[in-house]
Structure formats: C-alpha cells, structure tokens
Design a protein around this nucleic acid. Sequence first.
DNA 1: ATAAATGTTAAGAA
DNA 2: GTTCTTAACATTTA
Length: 263
Amino acid sequence: MPELAEVEYARKRWDAGIGANIIAVELHATKRVFRGTDTRELKRQLIGRRLLSSVARGKQMLFRFGGDNSLGIHLGMSGSMRMEPPGFRAAKHDHLVLRQAKQALVLRDPRQFGRARFHHGKSRPDWWSAAPEIGSPEFTSEYFDDFLARHRRAPVKAVLLLQSGFPGIGNWMADEILWRAHVVPNRRVEKLKAQERTALRRATRFVSREALRIVGHDDSNLPKTWLIHERWSAKGVCPLHKTPLERATIGGRTTAWCPTCQR
DNA sequence: ATAAATGTTAAGAA
DNA sequence: GTTCTTAACATTTA
C-alpha cells in the first residue's frame, strides 16, 4: 500500500538492521523486481557489508551500505518490507532477504511492480530522483505553477500522479488533495484559476505533511474526516455531507470525487 | 469467471 | 522536441 507515507513507514521497518553486517543475501534472481539489476553483483558486494543508513524520496528508498554500495527499493503496487527472526524461511513472494546476526530484512512484493536495484560507487545513482520534495523549501509556488504550466492540457488528476513533480503522491493522495482543494479531477490544468492553484498547492502540502506525520510514523489511521476511508468502496460517500461519490477512470486510474464539493 | 487493485514505463499519437 | 494517452507488466482478491 505504498504512497509517500506508507513508503516512509516501510523504510523504518529495516531500521533495526542499521549498524549490523549483512551475513547472507537470498534473492529470487529471475523475478521481475530485479529487472535491470545485476543480482550477482548485488550479492557479491553486500555480503560482509554493514547497513549504514537509509533515506526516502517520494516513493523511492535508498539503503546505504559500507564500501559505497547502495540498494534502491521501490514498492510498486504491492511491495512491503519487514523484519523477521534469524531463522526465517523466505516464502514465495519474499524476493529479497538480507540476513544479519540478529534479524533478517525482508522485501516482499507479490505483483512485482516494485523493484530492487543496486548501485556501487560514490556517484548518485541515475535512477535516484532529484525532484524537489513536497515538504521542501524548493517546492515553491513558482515551481508548482511552472510544473502545472508544462502539463496544461492534461487533467489535473493525471498531473498530480506525475512523480517528476509530485514525488510520493499516488492514487489515494491525489483524490484526497483534489477533494480538499474543491477541484474536480478531470479539470484541464489550464482551466484552473490562480486561486484554485493556490488551494491545490496548499492541499498538496497538507495531505503530504499529515500523512507523513500520522501514517509514516507508526501506520496509524488518518482522521475519519478524510476521503481516503470512503474512496475504496463503490458505496463511498463524501465525509462532509454524505453525498455519494462519483467515480471514473482519469489518468488511467480509478478516481473518486464529490460532485457537490468539487467543481 | 471477470474485474479491479495505493505504480511505472514504453510506445505511439497529438 | 515535448506532452499526453494507453497498454502492459504479475498476482491476488472480490
């Protein structure tokens, strides 16, 4: 279930392994999560190395190891991370297991839309995004408006899903943001008034910050007033006045919105 | 059995 | 050349 905050939560699942050596690496080398990755090199380099630190950017994670080695992880649609006891046996979908003396770090991904990549060297991996994060000082209104301007013909929902401008935003967050900004998801970006763009940017920052604070911290539930709790079910209603939600495919994804709140 | 699922990306169209 | 749309990827669940 990985968007910005779920990714942050997943990243921390491996925190207990920081500072400890990797004594063995087990992986399902032919699985799609390793597409484009040299798994033999990954294994060869990581064994005997210490896990030093980790960072997340949007939906991407980077785990740094000794010897200038790093492991990039993206959870795709169904990826998850967890810790298991040392004697743990990998199941069918546990595609990567990093064994340490006191625990095993596990990456699981049944659908395999996610991926695990390896990078050796001091340089920044070319797959590591440089886009400003939503909570960062670089995410200014100028930057925001400029990004929207470059995608003026697309429906605003589709643009919110672009990781090059909105790192970490996914399907539920995009719907949540649009609902709070009172904008219908299929509005062309060029039709947004300045006031609506401001509302959109505010909602983007609010949803990201609150999700990170609540879900990213300990996987707690978001307040009952949020749209997320209604949008999954076909019978979902607006949290404000119980109007049945509309739904359609926009930007290639199932989208839910309130026809009363959003224009 | 068919459809849909919290994502990305290649390919082709505009 | 850039932007936009859509199909495809692999598996489980409703």
